[in-house]
Design a binder for these strands. Sequence first.
DNA 1: TTCATATTTCCAGAATAGTCAAATTATATT
DNA 2: AATATAATTTGACTATTCTGGAAATATGAA
Lengths: 96, 96
Amino acid sequence: MKISDAVEALGALAQQSRLEVYRYLVQAGPGGVAAGAIAEHFGMPGATLSFHLSALKQAHLVVCQREGRSLIYSANYQTMGELMSYLTENCCQGGV
Amino acid sequence: MKISDAVEALGALAQQSRLEVYRYLVQAGPGGVAAGAIAEHFGMPGATLSFHLSALKQAHLVVCQREGRSLIYSANYQTMGELMSYLTENCCQGGV
DNA sequence: TTCATATTTCCAGAATAGTCAAATTATATT
DNA sequence: AATATAATTTGACTATTCTGGAAATATGAA
């Protein structure tokens, strides 16, 4: 993971609403949650949620797939794992 | 660590210059580096560096101590450890 | 004291991020 | 086709962040 990717992933998580949404998707598991259901759960306007989801998607922290009229979002554990590795290697004691 | 603390720490690291400065301080080790030396290393105006250091300090990711006319900044590994724990517990598979 | 050095704070401007109603796109149902 | 539902994009606005010169603060040396 390059530093610019780490900055993007960190930035995507560095906002209360987005971190809550990401946690929620992690808890929801691989099945994911439809955008509308996420918006309802957090009482957030659709446009606002969509803005935040696109930041998470841009950082590859979530993926989405269409199912009928719904878009199902789910956490992409791989990117989070890469971010954790980046931080462990570059920002923790004993790092390179 | 509360979610608001996690957001603050993530936000402090979610900027290229700050992430580079933090990495540099981690590499420098417990002895730390004077603000001026950091600014010189990155070719960054003092005021700009000071702004970024205060964000890292606010998030408790760095600490500083005066030594003569210099302020020596060093990485605070404990906060980074707490952030890693937060992410592991809340944002990774198998989390609560 | 006076001068020099190290750093921060103040200030203003430029850039980016966050919010949400309204319009648009995509899909499904009748 | 016409209508309804799910979500995104657009657009306008407000708020926050970033940048760096200039002024202020703090310490040390002559």
